[in-house]
Every structure is written in C-alpha cells, then in structure tokens.
Amino acid sequence: RKWEEIAERLREEFNINPEEAREAVEKAGGNEEEARRIVKKRL
C-alpha cells in the first residue's frame, strides 16, 4: 500500500516510530506533503 511507503519514508527521515508515521499519513489522507507538515509540527 502506498500509505505504508510514505509512512516508512517519514519514519526514516524524521526518526519517528512507525505508529507516529502511520498516524500522520492517515490524518493527511495519504498526502505525503501534508503528512510531512503534520510530523514537523509534532517535533
């Protein structure tokens, strides 16, 4: 699934746990840019 690939990239890029990465992607509706913004806000 594409969402899992996005979550994996976010996890590696921001050094967050898989659960946090998945939550961000879900919140963003699968949009990678939006997920990235969500993760950055949390850091």
Rank of each mutant, 00 (worst) to 15 (best):
I38C: 08
R9F: 04
E8T: 13
N17A: 15
N15V: 09
E5L: 13
F14T: 11
E5V: 10
A28M: 07
E23A: 09
K2P: 08
N15W: 03
E12L: 11
E23H: 07
E23Q: 09
V25T: 03
E5R: 08
E20R: 12
K41V: 09
R9H: 11
G29C: 05
I6E: 08
E4T: 14
F14I: 03
K40P: 15
N15I: 09
K41C: 12
G30Y: 12
N15M: 11
F14L: 12
E33M: 08
A7T: 12
E26H: 06
E19P: 12
F14P: 01
A28H: 01
I16V: 14
R37F: 04
A35Y: 00
I6S: 14
R11T: 12
R37M: 09
E32W: 06
G29V: 09
P18T: 03
E33N: 01
I16T: 10
E33V: 06
A24S: 05
E12F: 07
E5C: 08
R36T: 11
I6F: 04
R9E: 09
V39Y: 02
A28K: 01
E32R: 05
G30K: 04
R42L: 09
I38L: 12
E20G: 08
R11D: 06
I16R: 01
E4L: 08
E34A: 10
A28L: 01
L43T: 02
R22I: 03
V39C: 11
A28C: 11
I6P: 06
V25I: 02
R36H: 15
E34T: 13
V39M: 09
V39G: 02
K2I: 14
I6V: 09
E26N: 10
R9V: 12
R11K: 06
E12W: 03
A35I: 01
I16M: 15
V39P: 00
G30I: 02
E5I: 11
E34H: 15
A7C: 04
L43V: 06
I6D: 02
A24P: 01
K40D: 13
A21S: 10
E23R: 09
G30R: 05
V39W: 05
E32M: 14
I16F: 02
N31R: 10
P18L: 04
I6Q: 13
E33A: 10
E8F: 07
N17D: 12
A28G: 12
E13K: 03
R37H: 09
K2S: 13
V25E: 01
V39I: 11
I16G: 02
I16D: 01
W3G: 14
A24W: 04
V39H: 01
N17S: 12
V25D: 00
E8S: 06
N15C: 03
W3I: 15
E19H: 10
E13S: 13
L10A: 01
N17E: 03
K41W: 06
G29S: 09
A24H: 04
E26G: 08
E13L: 10
R11V: 13
I6H: 08
A28Q: 02
R22Q: 11
I6K: 10
E8C: 04
E4D: 02
E23W: 11
N31P: 00
E12T: 09
R22N: 08
E33Y: 03
A28R: 01
I38W: 14
N31Q: 07
N17Q: 14
A35C: 04
R1E: 15
E32L: 07
E13T: 09
I38P: 00
A24T: 08
R42D: 04
E20Q: 11
